[in-house]
Nucleic acid binder design. Structure first.
Lengths: 185, 185
DNA sequence: ACCCCATGCCTAAAAATCAGGCATGGGGCA
DNA sequence: TGCCCCATGCCTGATTTTTAGGCATGGGGT
């Protein structure tokens, strides 16, 4: 089955999160909004943090489905941005009222997911040592995490796209060069 | 519960009906589109005609909810129009490929529903004989049916609004006058 | 300090969805 | 014409999902 109820819970939560901060949203509010029993919420999700986690993971997977290969590092960040911007108010409400730990957990999850896909594309079949791959993965994932954190801190300003474009010029080819240096002979 | 599956079936059907004529849509297509078991369709609906009937009835009820009172006869037709226009391609596919009987059944249903609400508003508490009420109801419902049939026949042209506006001027006050003539002393 | 309310959880009943199969009948094709 | 395919409508029983109602806990606000 297609879990329409689960989707409806997520949709209601997102809607409420667009209206007010996380701290002012209860399970009762959510189930009232989509007209289901409170137990049904607990059937699908352990609690609200898990609901958020689920939604973030689904977003990450949706990004990956939409971009089965990611050619440029900036596209990879851009994909995350587009998703976040499509629910800007909700994301900011999460960012400002979720505990720092929770918020970081989610962001890392997205960054790791998406960077993995980008890296697979960038490697293009070439083989490098697992340790090196791990280092590069961590480097890129951290870079993405940092950039996005910075952007969230500033309230998700729209000029981020221009920043990416400029960044793209500045660091052109550097990731490919890193990979080449690690390449096994 | 809120019957999310039922809504999903209706949404899939509407989507398919926007893409191709009714004759080319099977139950299998519908359940495939929304990713559910074929039996689940039959759990909610007897068959496709009943599905259409359900959707039409829901539309009619939605119109009534949106316009709990209807001041002008033209508003009443306008409400039906808005609903139909919001799914123009699908409505035309129904109009052209459903059997005449079925299509007329649905249209009458909508007209009767909406005219009832309009009449209740127009009466504004005044009492007239049941027979008279019945006559006026039939008259208005037939008028609505005819106008909408004509509009469908012509492919739902957009200028219908202007036609309504003009009609409104021409027949101003006539319905109120009919009611007054029937009013019991 | 007290109360209220959200939470998380439990049980049992009811509702909804599923898999698999069967008979029918109409449409298309040889 | 006869045959075959496939959609239909329906059935059964298993499984999953949703519901109603209640209970204990703990934190926040008065």
């Amino acid at each position: 089955m297609a879990n329409f109820t689960k989707k409806a819970i997520e949709a209601s939560f997102l809607k409420l999160l667009t209206e007010r901060p996380l701290s002012q949203i209860t399970v009762k509010d959510i189930v009232a909004d989509c007209g289901i029993n409170r137990n049904t919420f607990y059937y699908h999700f352990e609690d609200i943090p898990k609901l958020i986690e689920d939604m973030v993971e689904e977003d990450a997977e949706a990004i990956i489905r939409a971009y089965p290969t990611i050619e440029k590092f900036e596209d990879c960040l851009g994909a995350v941005l587009d998703t976040a911007l499509s629910k800007k108010r909700a994301v900011l409400h999460i960012y400002h009222s979720a505990s720092r730990d929770i918020y970081e957990l989610y962001l890392w999850k997205v960054c790791d997911h998406v960077i993995d896909v980008y890296l697979a594309t960038a490697l293009n079949g070439r083989r490098i040592k697992d340790e090196d791959l791990c280092v590069i993965q961590k480097y890129l994932s951290s870079l993405a995490f940092g950039i996005i954190s910075n952007w969230l801190k500033d309230g998700m300003p729209d000029n981020i796209r221009a920043v990416f474009a400029r960044l793209s010029e500045i660091k052109k080819g550097m990731i490919q060069e890193m990979i080449s240096r690690c390449e096994e002979q």
